[in-house]
Amino acid sequence: MRFLIIIPAHNEESNLPFTLDSLQRQSFKDFKIVIVNDGSADNTSEVIRKYTDQDSRFETVNLQKSLHQPGSKVVNAFKKGLETQDVNMFDVICKFDSDVIFPENYLEKIDKAFRSNPEYGLVGGLLYVEKNGDWVYEGNSNKHHVRGPVKAYRKESFIQMNGIRETLGWDNIDAILLQNLGWKEVVLPELHVHLIKVKGTDYTIKPAEYYGKYFYFLGLNRFLAYIASFKEAAKSKSVSFFFKIIGSYENYRRKKLELKISEQERKVINRQRWEMLKQKWLKM
């Protein structure tokens, strides 16, 4: 299978070489990489040039700096990169981050999984972060969900779901839509991807404003949004956190901001969330 790998990058001069070096070292060689330089103000462009000058599999797209919007910024950059390529020339479409280090057999294992399992639509490994000198599981999601930095889609599944959405929550929306279309999302736990991040940073801690906005753009109805808000507040053991989240959610509802999913897709997402709620909480 032939891979198209698109990597959005903004001010990643320190991290990007680790990502690109790990891809050059892959045992699987049939891929093309498009690095989308999203208005970087550092030396990201110079870093990219070192690879595009030496390896014909590497290309770059330069964008003006886009406004920072969680989810939408990175997807916008991804789409700009995708527009420069003929998707029909590839079998697998990857959205990778610019601050990860892949094991040398990553693409080989992904290729084998797709070829051996025609029902697989989305495949990826697990993210690990450095803690006290060791690499440990990130734990920011369940181990059955392919995280945003390491997405690999079968081309047919990607086309059927109309690509990824330029919105907060896109990396959950894709999995739900693919499942509804009959495709499987599969994590290969033996593939450990190292996520480079600033020491002391905890990406699992997010403000109430974020969750309210996330639940709105995910398309959750009020009942499910309140349940999800309660779940997040319970983690923090804070009643006030619950009210802040639903306050944020209701604020976005009042504004009636445009969702990047259709009404039918919104129904699919709510139905899937309800089924998860029944299985995990209600034991039905």
Rank of each mutant, 00 (worst) to 15 (best):
M1V: 14
F3G: 09
F3E: 12
L4A: 14
I6Q: 04
A9R: 03
H10P: 00
N11G: 01
E12R: 11
E13N: 06
S14V: 00
N15Q: 09
T19C: 14
L20Y: 08
L20V: 06
R25F: 10
D30A: 12
D30K: 10
D30M: 07
K32D: 11
K32N: 09
D38V: 11
T44N: 03
T44M: 02
T44D: 00
S45W: 05
Y51L: 00
Y51A: 02
T52R: 00
D53W: 01
Q54M: 03
D55I: 03
S56I: 00
F58C: 04
E59A: 01
V61M: 03
N62K: 01
L63E: 13
K65D: 05
S66T: 13
Q69R: 06
P70V: 04
G71F: 01
S72P: 01
S72W: 00
K73I: 03
N76F: 08
F78T: 08
K80R: 12
G81Y: 04
L82G: 03
T84H: 02
F90Y: 15
C94V: 07
K95V: 02
F96T: 13
F96I: 12
Y106M: 06
E108R: 11
E108S: 15
D111R: 11
R115Q: 12
E119A: 11
Y120F: 14
V123R: 11
L127C: 13
Y128P: 15
D134P: 02
D134H: 06
W135V: 09
V136R: 01
Y137N: 14
G139K: 00
S141T: 12
H144N: 15
V146L: 01
G148A: 10
V150R: 13
A152K: 03
F158P: 00
I159K: 04
G163A: 01
G169E: 04
N172A: 07
D174A: 06
A175G: 14
I176Y: 10
L177K: 02
V186N: 04
I196Q: 13
I196S: 08
K197G: 14
K197A: 15
V198N: 09
V198K: 09
K199C: 09
T201R: 08
T201E: 14
D202S: 12
T204K: 00
I205E: 07
K213D: 08
F215E: 09
F215P: 02
Y216A: 12
L218W: 05
N221C: 04
R222C: 06
R222A: 11
R222F: 05
F223S: 10
L224Y: 08
A225W: 02
A225Q: 05
I227R: 07
A234D: 14
S236F: 06
K244P: 04
K244F: 06
I245F: 03
I245M: 09
I245L: 03
G247F: 00
R254T: 12
R254P: 05
K256S: 15
K256G: 15
E258M: 08
S262L: 02
E263A: 13
V268G: 04
I269R: 08
R273I: 07
W274G: 11
W274T: 10
E275Q: 14
E275R: 12
K280A: 07
W281L: 08
W281P: 00
W281R: 12
